[in-house]
Protein backbone atom coordinates (compact mmCIF):
# COMPACT_ATOMS: atom_id res chain seq x y z
CA UNK A 1 0.00 0.00 0.00
CA UNK A 2 2.70 2.41 1.06
CA UNK A 3 4.64 1.36 -2.00
CA UNK A 4 1.73 2.17 -4.32
CA UNK A 5 1.42 5.59 -2.69
CA UNK A 6 5.09 6.25 -3.21
CA UNK A 7 4.88 5.25 -6.85
CA UNK A 8 1.83 7.45 -7.39
CA UNK A 9 3.58 10.34 -5.64
CA UNK A 10 6.66 10.05 -7.85
CA UNK A 11 4.55 9.87 -11.01
CA UNK A 12 2.45 12.89 -10.05
CA UNK A 13 5.57 14.88 -9.18
CA UNK A 14 7.17 13.97 -12.50
CA UNK A 15 4.08 14.95 -14.48
CA UNK A 16 3.85 18.25 -12.59
CA UNK A 17 7.52 19.03 -13.18
CA UNK A 18 7.13 18.00 -16.79
CA UNK A 19 4.51 20.67 -17.23
CA UNK A 20 6.16 23.30 -15.03
CA UNK A 21 9.85 23.10 -15.92
CA UNK A 22 9.69 24.08 -19.60
CA UNK A 23 7.61 27.12 -18.59
CA UNK A 24 9.88 28.14 -15.70
CA UNK A 25 13.23 27.63 -17.39
CA UNK A 26 14.57 28.98 -20.63
CA UNK A 27 15.52 26.31 -23.22
CA UNK A 28 19.21 26.50 -22.29
CA UNK A 29 18.58 25.85 -18.60
CA UNK A 30 16.02 23.17 -19.41
CA UNK A 31 18.54 21.34 -21.58
CA UNK A 32 21.04 21.42 -18.71
CA UNK A 33 18.44 19.91 -16.39
CA UNK A 34 17.80 17.09 -18.87
CA UNK A 35 21.52 16.45 -19.35
CA UNK A 36 21.95 16.39 -15.55
CA UNK A 37 19.30 13.68 -15.42
CA UNK A 38 20.97 11.60 -18.12
CA UNK A 39 24.35 11.94 -16.40
CA UNK A 40 22.78 10.92 -13.09
CA UNK A 41 21.54 7.70 -14.72
CA UNK A 42 25.01 7.07 -16.14
CA UNK A 43 26.80 7.75 -12.86
CA UNK A 44 24.42 5.73 -10.69
CA UNK A 45 24.57 2.79 -13.10
CA UNK A 46 28.38 2.84 -13.27
CA UNK A 47 28.39 3.01 -9.48
CA UNK A 48 26.84 -0.48 -9.49
CA UNK A 49 29.97 -1.82 -11.18
CA UNK A 50 32.76 0.39 -9.85
CA UNK A 51 31.28 1.46 -6.55
CA UNK A 52 29.30 -1.52 -5.27
CA UNK A 53 31.29 -4.37 -6.76
CA UNK A 54 34.74 -2.79 -6.89
CA UNK A 55 35.25 -3.79 -10.51
CA UNK A 56 36.96 -1.26 -12.68
CA UNK A 57 35.07 -0.40 -15.84
CA UNK A 58 36.13 2.55 -17.98
CA UNK A 59 34.03 1.83 -21.03
CA UNK A 60 30.67 3.21 -19.97
CA UNK A 61 30.45 5.46 -23.04
CA UNK A 62 30.48 2.31 -25.19
CA UNK A 63 27.40 0.94 -23.43
CA UNK A 64 25.73 4.31 -23.69
CA UNK A 65 26.51 4.43 -27.42
CA UNK A 66 25.03 0.97 -27.99
CA UNK A 67 21.84 1.97 -26.19
CA UNK A 68 21.66 5.28 -28.03
CA UNK A 69 22.15 3.84 -31.51
CA UNK A 70 20.14 0.68 -30.80
CA UNK A 71 17.11 2.56 -29.56
CA UNK A 72 17.40 5.21 -32.29
CA UNK A 73 17.50 2.58 -35.02
CA UNK A 74 14.50 0.86 -33.48
CA UNK A 75 12.50 4.07 -33.41
CA UNK A 76 13.51 5.07 -36.94
CA UNK A 77 12.66 1.73 -38.50
CA UNK A 78 9.90 0.34 -36.27
CA UNK A 79 8.71 2.72 -33.58
CA UNK A 80 7.77 5.61 -35.84
CA UNK A 81 5.58 3.32 -37.96
CA UNK A 82 3.79 2.06 -34.89
CA UNK A 83 3.16 5.54 -33.60
CA UNK A 84 1.65 6.51 -36.95
CA UNK A 85 -0.53 3.40 -36.92
CA UNK A 86 -1.67 4.00 -33.33
CA UNK A 87 -2.46 7.62 -33.95
CA UNK A 88 -4.43 6.61 -37.04
CA UNK A 89 -6.39 4.36 -34.68
CA UNK A 90 -7.21 7.47 -32.55
CA UNK A 91 -4.78 6.63 -29.74
CA UNK A 92 -3.63 9.97 -28.23
CA UNK A 93 -0.18 11.03 -29.48
CA UNK A 94 1.34 11.21 -25.99
CA UNK A 95 0.35 7.63 -25.24
CA UNK A 96 1.49 6.28 -28.61
CA UNK A 97 4.82 8.08 -28.39
CA UNK A 98 5.33 7.06 -24.79
CA UNK A 99 4.69 3.45 -25.68
CA UNK A 100 7.11 3.56 -28.62
CA UNK A 101 9.75 5.32 -26.55
CA UNK A 102 9.46 2.81 -23.73
CA UNK A 103 10.00 0.00 -26.23
CA UNK A 104 12.95 1.81 -27.81
CA UNK A 105 14.57 2.37 -24.42
CA UNK A 106 14.04 -1.29 -23.59
CA UNK A 107 15.65 -2.33 -26.88
CA UNK A 108 18.62 -0.03 -26.25
CA UNK A 109 18.96 -1.18 -22.66
CA UNK A 110 18.79 -4.86 -23.53
CA UNK A 111 21.29 -4.50 -26.37
CA UNK A 112 23.64 -2.82 -23.93
CA UNK A 113 22.99 -5.41 -21.26
CA UNK A 114 23.88 -8.15 -23.72
CA UNK A 115 27.16 -6.37 -24.44
CA UNK A 116 27.65 -5.97 -20.70
CA UNK A 117 27.27 -9.71 -20.32
CA UNK A 118 29.87 -10.34 -23.02
CA UNK A 119 32.28 -7.82 -21.50
CA UNK A 120 31.57 -9.10 -18.01
CA UNK A 121 32.58 -12.62 -18.97
CA UNK A 122 36.30 -11.84 -19.26
CA UNK A 123 36.09 -10.49 -15.73
CA UNK A 124 36.06 -14.15 -14.75
CA UNK A 125 39.70 -14.24 -15.70
CA UNK A 126 40.93 -10.67 -15.55
CA UNK A 127 41.52 -8.60 -12.50
CA UNK A 128 41.76 -4.92 -11.74
CA UNK A 129 43.54 -2.88 -14.33
CA UNK A 130 43.46 -5.56 -16.99
CA UNK A 131 39.69 -5.61 -16.80
CA UNK A 132 39.71 -1.83 -16.93
CA UNK A 133 41.69 -1.76 -20.11
CA UNK A 134 39.46 -4.37 -21.74
CA UNK A 135 36.38 -2.26 -21.00
CA UNK A 136 38.21 0.77 -22.39
CA UNK A 137 39.03 -1.22 -25.50
CA UNK A 138 35.42 -2.32 -25.82
CA UNK A 139 34.24 1.29 -25.73
CA UNK A 140 36.73 2.33 -28.40
CA UNK A 141 35.88 -0.61 -30.64
CA UNK A 142 32.17 0.25 -30.47
CA UNK A 143 32.94 3.83 -31.42
CA UNK A 144 35.20 2.88 -34.34
CA UNK A 145 32.57 0.46 -35.64
CA UNK A 146 29.84 3.12 -35.45
CA UNK A 147 32.13 5.54 -37.25
CA UNK A 148 32.49 3.02 -40.06
CA UNK A 149 28.97 1.67 -40.51
CA UNK A 150 26.98 3.64 -43.09
CA UNK A 151 23.61 2.30 -41.95
CA UNK A 152 23.93 4.30 -38.70
CA UNK A 153 25.30 7.38 -40.41
CA UNK A 154 29.00 6.59 -39.88
CA UNK A 155 31.06 9.65 -38.98
CA UNK A 156 28.39 12.03 -40.37
CA UNK A 157 26.07 11.12 -37.50
CA UNK A 158 22.50 9.88 -37.32
CA UNK A 159 19.84 12.60 -37.76
CA UNK A 160 16.06 12.57 -37.60
CA UNK A 161 15.52 10.54 -34.45
CA UNK A 162 12.03 11.31 -33.10
CA UNK A 163 12.32 13.70 -30.16
CA UNK A 164 9.94 11.91 -27.83
CA UNK A 165 11.88 12.52 -24.63
CA UNK A 166 10.64 15.15 -22.22
CA UNK A 167 11.41 15.72 -18.58
CA UNK A 168 8.96 13.03 -17.46
CA UNK A 169 10.90 10.22 -19.13
CA UNK A 170 14.28 11.39 -17.93
CA UNK A 171 12.91 11.76 -14.42
CA UNK A 172 11.41 8.28 -14.60
CA UNK A 173 14.77 6.83 -15.67
CA UNK A 174 16.50 8.61 -12.81
CA UNK A 175 13.91 7.37 -10.32
CA UNK A 176 14.16 3.81 -11.62
CA UNK A 177 17.95 3.54 -11.41
CA UNK A 178 18.07 5.11 -7.94
CA UNK A 179 15.25 2.89 -6.69
CA UNK A 180 16.98 -0.21 -8.01
CA UNK A 181 20.37 0.78 -6.60
CA UNK A 182 19.11 1.59 -3.13
CA UNK A 183 17.02 -1.56 -2.83
CA UNK A 184 19.85 -3.65 -4.17
CA UNK A 185 22.28 -2.14 -1.69
CA UNK A 186 20.03 -3.09 1.22
CA UNK A 187 19.58 -6.71 0.24
CA UNK A 188 21.50 -9.92 0.41
CA UNK A 189 22.53 -9.45 -3.23
CA UNK A 190 23.87 -5.99 -2.58
CA UNK A 191 25.80 -7.31 0.41
CA UNK A 192 27.29 -9.96 -1.86
CA UNK A 193 28.49 -7.23 -4.23
CA UNK A 194 30.03 -5.25 -1.38
CA UNK A 195 31.72 -8.42 -0.15
CA UNK A 196 33.35 -8.90 -3.55
CA UNK A 197 34.62 -5.34 -3.43
CA UNK A 198 36.11 -5.75 0.04
CA UNK A 199 37.63 -9.20 -0.36
CA UNK A 200 36.90 -11.39 -3.31
CA UNK A 201 38.66 -14.48 -1.95
CA UNK A 202 36.80 -14.38 1.35
CA UNK A 203 33.49 -13.74 -0.40
CA UNK A 204 33.98 -16.80 -2.58
CA UNK A 205 35.04 -18.95 0.39
CA UNK A 206 31.87 -17.96 2.22
CA UNK A 207 29.62 -19.09 -0.58
CA UNK A 208 29.22 -15.99 -2.75
CA UNK A 209 29.28 -16.95 -6.42
CA UNK A 210 31.60 -14.06 -7.24
CA UNK A 211 31.66 -14.73 -10.97
CA UNK A 212 27.90 -14.53 -11.41
CA UNK A 213 27.64 -11.46 -9.24
CA UNK A 214 30.35 -9.62 -11.16
CA UNK A 215 28.60 -10.40 -14.44
CA UNK A 216 25.30 -9.34 -12.87
CA UNK A 217 26.77 -5.98 -11.90
CA UNK A 218 28.06 -5.49 -15.43
CA UNK A 219 24.71 -6.41 -16.97
CA UNK A 220 22.69 -4.09 -14.70
CA UNK A 221 25.17 -1.23 -15.14
CA UNK A 222 25.17 -1.66 -18.91
CA UNK A 223 21.38 -1.83 -19.09
CA UNK A 224 20.93 1.56 -17.49
CA UNK A 225 23.79 3.07 -19.48
CA UNK A 226 21.88 1.88 -22.56
CA UNK A 227 18.68 3.49 -21.27
CA UNK A 228 20.57 6.73 -20.67
CA UNK A 229 21.87 6.51 -24.23
CA UNK A 230 18.33 5.98 -25.53
CA UNK A 231 17.07 9.03 -23.63
CA UNK A 232 20.00 11.05 -24.98
CA UNK A 233 19.20 9.99 -28.56
CA UNK A 234 15.49 10.76 -28.32
CA UNK A 235 16.11 14.07 -26.63
CA UNK A 236 18.67 15.52 -29.06
CA UNK A 237 17.17 13.82 -32.16
CA UNK A 238 20.71 13.52 -33.51
CA UNK A 239 23.62 11.22 -32.67
CA UNK A 240 27.30 11.55 -33.47
CA UNK A 241 29.98 8.99 -32.62
CA UNK A 242 32.09 11.77 -31.14
CA UNK A 243 29.67 12.03 -28.21
CA UNK A 244 30.83 8.61 -27.04
CA UNK A 245 34.60 8.89 -26.87
CA UNK A 246 36.81 7.68 -24.12
CA UNK A 247 36.44 11.15 -22.55
CA UNK A 248 32.75 10.53 -21.93
CA UNK A 249 33.60 7.34 -20.00
CA UNK A 250 36.14 9.29 -18.02
CA UNK A 251 33.58 11.95 -17.21
CA UNK A 252 31.23 9.32 -15.75
CA UNK A 253 34.02 7.71 -13.73
CA UNK A 254 34.95 11.10 -12.33
CA UNK A 255 31.34 11.47 -11.17
CA UNK A 256 31.35 8.10 -9.42
CA UNK A 257 34.70 8.64 -7.70
CA UNK A 258 33.92 12.21 -6.79
CA UNK A 259 30.59 11.17 -5.27
CA UNK A 260 32.24 8.51 -3.16
CA UNK A 261 32.53 4.94 -4.41
CA UNK A 262 29.45 2.96 -3.49
CA UNK A 263 27.35 5.94 -2.45
CA UNK A 264 24.22 6.29 -4.60
CA UNK A 265 23.38 9.77 -3.36
CA UNK A 266 27.04 10.73 -3.84
CA UNK A 267 26.89 9.66 -7.46
CA UNK A 268 23.71 11.70 -7.97
CA UNK A 269 25.25 14.76 -6.35
CA UNK A 270 28.55 14.50 -8.22
CA UNK A 271 26.79 13.94 -11.56
CA UNK A 272 24.88 17.17 -11.05
CA UNK A 273 27.96 19.08 -9.84
CA UNK A 274 30.14 17.94 -12.73
CA UNK A 275 27.42 18.66 -15.31
CA UNK A 276 26.87 22.15 -13.94
CA UNK A 277 30.53 23.00 -13.37
CA UNK A 278 31.50 23.55 -17.04
CA UNK A 279 28.31 25.59 -17.54
CA UNK A 280 28.99 27.72 -14.48
CA UNK A 281 32.52 28.28 -15.75
CA UNK A 282 31.25 29.40 -19.15
CA UNK A 283 31.85 33.13 -18.47
CA UNK A 284 35.60 32.55 -18.10
CA UNK A 285 35.62 31.13 -21.66
CA UNK A 286 39.13 30.01 -22.55
CA UNK A 287 40.01 29.19 -18.97
CA UNK A 288 36.91 27.05 -18.48
CA UNK A 289 38.34 23.61 -19.18
CA UNK A 290 41.65 24.44 -17.51
CA UNK A 291 39.79 25.42 -14.35
CA UNK A 292 37.58 22.35 -14.60
CA UNK A 293 40.54 19.97 -14.74
CA UNK A 294 42.37 21.90 -12.06
CA UNK A 295 39.38 21.68 -9.73
CA UNK A 296 39.11 17.95 -10.39
CA UNK A 297 42.72 17.48 -9.24
CA UNK A 298 42.24 19.67 -6.18
CA UNK A 299 39.03 17.83 -5.23
CA UNK A 300 40.77 14.48 -5.48
CA UNK A 301 43.68 15.68 -3.35
CA UNK A 302 41.49 17.23 -0.67
CA UNK A 303 38.67 14.65 -0.65
CA UNK A 304 40.03 11.40 -2.10
CA UNK A 305 37.17 9.40 -0.56
CA UNK A 306 34.69 11.48 -2.58
CA UNK A 307 32.14 14.01 -1.46
CA UNK A 308 30.07 11.56 0.58
CA UNK A 309 32.60 8.76 1.10
CA UNK A 310 30.81 5.49 1.66
CA UNK A 311 27.75 7.10 3.21
CA UNK A 312 24.30 7.78 1.88
CA UNK A 313 22.73 11.14 2.15
CA UNK A 314 19.53 10.50 4.07
CA UNK A 315 16.93 12.50 5.91
CA UNK A 316 17.85 10.99 9.27
CA UNK A 317 21.47 11.85 8.68
CA UNK A 318 20.57 15.42 7.80
CA UNK A 319 18.27 15.87 10.77
CA UNK A 320 20.82 14.35 13.11
CA UNK A 321 23.37 16.86 11.87
CA UNK A 322 20.94 19.72 12.25
CA UNK A 323 20.07 18.61 15.77
CA UNK A 324 23.72 18.46 16.67
CA UNK A 325 24.30 21.88 15.16
CA UNK A 326 21.25 23.26 16.89
CA UNK A 327 21.93 21.70 20.29
CA UNK A 328 23.93 24.50 21.97
CA UNK A 329 21.35 27.17 21.26
CA UNK A 330 18.45 25.01 22.46
Amino acid sequence: MRRALWLAGVLVALVALNVALPRLLNPYLFQIVVLCGINVILAVSLNLVNGFTGQFSIGHAGFMALGAYGSAMFSLHVGQGWVAALEAGHVPGVVAEGFALLLALLVGGLLSALAGYLVGLPSLRLRGDYLAIVTLGFGEIIRVIITNVDAVGASRGLPGIPGWVNFFWVGLGVAAVIFLSLNLARSTHGRALFAIRDDEVAAEALGVDTTSYKVLAFVLGAFFAGVAGGLFAHYLSYLNPNSFTFLKSIEVIAMVVLGGLGSVSGAVLAAIVLTLLPEVLRPVKDYRMVLYSFMLIVLMITRPQGLLGNRELSLTWLTRRRRRAGAPSA
Partner: peptide, 13 residues
Protein backbone atom coordinates in the same frame (compact mmCIF):
# COMPACT_ATOMS: atom_id res chain seq x y z
CA UNK B 1 36.99 -9.55 6.83
CA UNK B 2 34.83 -7.31 4.65
CA UNK B 3 36.50 -4.29 6.09
CA UNK B 4 34.08 -1.54 5.12
CA UNK B 5 30.99 -3.47 6.27
CA UNK B 6 29.68 -3.64 9.81
CA UNK B 7 29.88 -6.87 11.82
CA UNK B 8 26.24 -7.68 11.19
CA UNK B 9 26.71 -7.35 7.43
CA UNK B 10 29.82 -9.50 7.54
CA UNK B 11 27.76 -12.28 9.05
CA UNK B 12 24.75 -11.68 6.78
CA UNK B 13 26.92 -11.98 3.69
Amino acid sequence: LFASRCCRDNVCI
